[in-house]
């Protein structure tokens, strides 16, 4: 018999990891090898930020690190750097989860956008500091902008399908602990 409490607690991390790896898998498909003009949204980053803002208790830090490290390795990024920055930003968001609970959607969107811009800029700054060749700033900017634009769509989709919404103040989890 599967314990329903345990199933709920394990279910969301598994869904998060599956979604991230699914998007990564889709991106790796050799559908078109032509360079693109406008890059698509960075779904893994988007999902991570979204989930950390809405339900930080679903995505433990080790899971985030594991998913992002796999993405680092598969997409030829310098391993570790992007993951470390995303981890730190997600920890920052996690530490403010009480105040993030009470904001409206526009403010949540703004926080997510700022987080993504910060991650991109810090990543580029560190890479520049270590003299690693990187793609143009315009391209990175464009990708973050596209990601920001995709945030509400993903947020509403996840809310509709998975019931992923922010916890109401004073809500308790299945074990009776405060979130």
């Amino acid at each position: 018999m599967v314990d329903p409490v345990l199933a709920r607690r394990l279910g969301y991390p598994v869904i998060y990891a599956t979604l991230c790896l699914g998007f990564l898998f889709l991106r790796l498909l050799p559908l078109s090898t032509l360079p693109v003009g406008v890059p698509g949204p960075d779904f893994v980053l988007l999902l991570t930020i979204l989930w950390v803002i809405r339900r930080p208790d679903h995505v433990p830090a080790p899971l985030i690190v594991a998913v992002l490290l796999i993405e680092d390795l598969m997409t030829m990024r310098p391993p570790g750097l992007w993951t470390a920055i995303v981890l730190l930003v997600s920890e920052f968001l996690r530490s403010h989860r009480i105040s993030l609970r009470e904001v409206n959607f526009l403010l949540e969107w703004l926080v997510a956008s700022l987080a993504m811009f910060a991650i991109m800029l810090v990543n580029r700054a560190v890479l520049a500091l270590f003299v690693v060749p990187q793609a143009g700033l315009g391209m990175s900017m464009l990708q973050v902008i596209v990601s920001v634009a995709a945030y509400p769509v993903l947020a509403f989709a996840l809310q509709a399908v998975l019931g992923l919404r922010r916890t109401a103040p004073g809500e308790v989890d299945a074990m009776g602990q405060r979130l």
Binding site: T33, P35, M139
Partner: peptide, 13 residues
Amino acid sequence: VLADAGSPFRQSV
């Protein structure tokens, strides 16, 4: 060809 780079900044297969 099995997979491509999976990133808009890299062109490899």
